[in-house]
Computed example of a mutant assay.
Amino acid sequence: MQPYVLVLSDEQSECLLNYLRDHRWHKDQVPYSLYAYHTPGVKVVVYHNQKLVVQGKDVEDFVLHTLETEITHKPLYGYDRVNHPEWFEAHAGLDESGKGDLFGPLVAATVIADGTAVDFWLSKGLKESKAIKSDERLFKMEALVREPKGVVIETAYANMERYNELYAKFGNLNQLLAWMHARALDTALQKSTVQKGLLDQFVKAHLVQKFLKRSDFTLQQRVRAEEDPVVAAASIIARATYVRKLRDLSKEAGINLPKGCGIDAQKALTTLGDTVGRDQLKRYAKMHFKTINEVLKS
């Protein structure tokens, strides 16, 4: 029986803990856990991020007759294929990373997978990259994405000087992003001939298909597309690739280049301009950001 994984709310976690205590489950000591208990057929572990992992031969019975009836009050177990049959059909998922980060590349990622891979990912608690708080956890999830056989993964990105040249050519970030998505998707489709894909809606117009070589491919766009596990997998690949490239760029710059575009990024930009010269900022930063003009004027 595969482990069952679910992220609980604080209230649900407290309710579960009280249930386990009241029903005299045996307490365990598990590293990094908030609490852990077991009976002869089930082991329950809740971690500090409220991630619940249920293991043992009686997982299904516990989830259906205790967890969902007494704690969460939501029938979720085994219903993914009923509620979301499209998740389990072979298709492409697309996502990107770096769009809102001052330093480092814009990365477009395509993942193509079928129901076997989705079943595996769901059993391991796959979640989209924005829900992952640490780089270490991100890289672990990336390894899980790559584990199932037959999964196709492709990325598209450019070094920062090339990125800035491309932005000047396209004159619009969404146009550039659509072109990069089309590059990654076209390459992936050379390895797997699926007929459809899903992308988070970043513009109303179907810009990606304008750049796509395959005319018989249907690309859907919708808000919160990352609820689809294949799109979530693409978001993890895109973010992990971005983080690695940003680390490489930091080594080249000789200073830590932070994610985002907040105060830390602005301070790093000023330091970098003083260190390498403002004419060299194009090697590290997205030159169309308003922050760039503010630093150059100062």
Rank of each mutant, 00 (worst) to 15 (best):
A188C: 00
S134K: 11
V30W: 06
K99F: 10
R21T: 11
Q12N: 12
A184C: 05
S298N: 14
V107M: 10
E227T: 09
E96Q: 06
E252N: 14
P229S: 00
A234H: 01
T110F: 01
Y77E: 02
R239K: 12
K267Q: 13
L246M: 08
L173I: 14
G104E: 08
E86Y: 11
Q50A: 09
F103P: 09
A90Q: 06
Y167M: 01
F62W: 06
T275A: 14
L8C: 04
H181R: 02
Q29E: 15
W179T: 09
R278Y: 11
K99T: 05
E226F: 00
K74Q: 13
Y163T: 01
L138G: 05
A285I: 03
R244L: 13
L122H: 07
H206M: 08
H65A: 11
S215K: 11
Y77C: 10
K196C: 00
Q2A: 09
E147H: 12
D101K: 00
D28L: 13
P258T: 03
F103L: 12
F120L: 04
Q201R: 15
E60A: 12
L246F: 14
P40F: 02
K149H: 12
L76V: 12
S33L: 06
A232P: 07
L281P: 05
T271E: 13
D114M: 01
D200V: 00
L212F: 04
H23I: 09
G197C: 02
D61C: 11
A117W: 01
L67G: 10
K196S: 10
A238H: 10
P31F: 01
T116M: 07
R146D: 01
M287N: 02
D135N: 15
R21P: 09
V208I: 13
T72L: 10
Y163V: 00
C261F: 07
S33P: 08
L94C: 06
L64K: 11
E294W: 07
S33Q: 09
L246P: 10
Q209K: 13
G115L: 03
T39G: 12
V63F: 07
S298P: 02
K169N: 05
E226G: 07
E227D: 10
K124I: 00
D28S: 09
S123G: 09
D114F: 04
V231D: 11
D135W: 10
K133Y: 02
E89Y: 14
F211L: 08
K169Q: 14
P75W: 02
R244W: 01
D186H: 03
V295M: 04
H26I: 08
T39I: 08
D119V: 08
D186T: 03
H84C: 07
K267A: 13
L257K: 00
K191D: 03
Y242M: 04
W87P: 06
Y77H: 11
R162D: 09
K297I: 10
E60W: 01
H38G: 14
L173E: 15
K245D: 09
A158W: 10
D279Q: 15
D135S: 15
S9E: 05
Q175P: 08
R247P: 06
K213T: 13
L144E: 01
D114S: 06
Q195N: 09
E11I: 04
A225S: 04
L296Q: 06
Q195F: 03
Q201T: 12
